[in-house]
């Protein structure tokens, strides 16, 4: 069915002034700096935490092996927590040639699925390792306290872990995943349009 409406002609009449290219360079540099700073910040936090824990190890010279295991677990927990930040960064910059839209949508869907998985799993592992680490770490010092003192210390620590695990963790996961799920649904919808 042909018609006398010349869409191409109408389409091409939409013209606005081309913005100055310099604005674009400024914006590009700003974005580059921001993502670079974010990466630096993550690394600084990582480094500071490890230095701090290393300092405790060195300064207090723990005797129990549990303390040492505790310290290692805590460091690992922090690394696990910060790793996805670095990974996401590399996932986004890895693409050398621009994929076609169909592939692109599939990549986006995959990326979101990975993020959903990461958020739930990483956060759980993080909390478990951190709790275990701290629990083991304080054992040496608690063992030097009176029984009542020890019980109180562990009771407070366990209560704190419980709040983290049963309240904070599910709340963070639900909040983050709700946003991701919404995006996933949208991207799936676009992907289905491809197959119509």
């Amino acid at each position: 069915m042909e018609t006398n409406i010349d869409f191409k002609k109408i389409w091409n009449q939409q013209n606005i002034e081309t913005p100055k290219v310099n604005n674009l360079y400024t914006k590009a540099n700003k974005l580059k700096r921001r993502s670079f700073l974010k990466l630096i910040l993550v690394n600084i936090i990582l480094l500071l935490s490890i230095t701090f824990i290393g300092f405790i190890w060195y300064y207090y010279q723990p005797e129990f092996v549990t303390t040492k295991i505790g310290i290692i677990l805590t460091i690992l927990a922090i690394i696990i927590f910060l790793l996805p930040f670095k990974k996401q960064f590399s996932l986004l910059t890895k693409n050398k040639t621009e994929p076609n839209s169909k592939e692109y949508l599939q990549q986006l869907i995959k990326l979101k699925e990975i993020q959903v998985y990461q958020q739930a799993t990483t956060l759980s592992i993080y909390f478990i390792m951190l709790s275990l680490g701290i629990g083991l770490y304080i054992f040496e010092y608690v063992s030097k306290m009176t029984i009542t003192g020890g019980i109180i210390t562990y009771a407070i620590t366990i209560l704190w872990f419980a709040i983290n695990w049963y309240y904070l963790r599910p709340k963070v996961i639900t909040k983050k995943n709700a946003k991701l799920h919404k995006l996933l649904v949208e991207f799936e919808k676009l992907n289905n349009q491809m197959n119509d």
Binding site: E98, N100, S101, Y104, L105, L183, E186, F187, L190
Partner: peptide, 13 residues
Amino acid sequence: FRIASNTCLRQIQ
């Protein structure tokens, strides 16, 4: 145009 189309599609974010 691939970059442009993909930027549009990612717009929902």
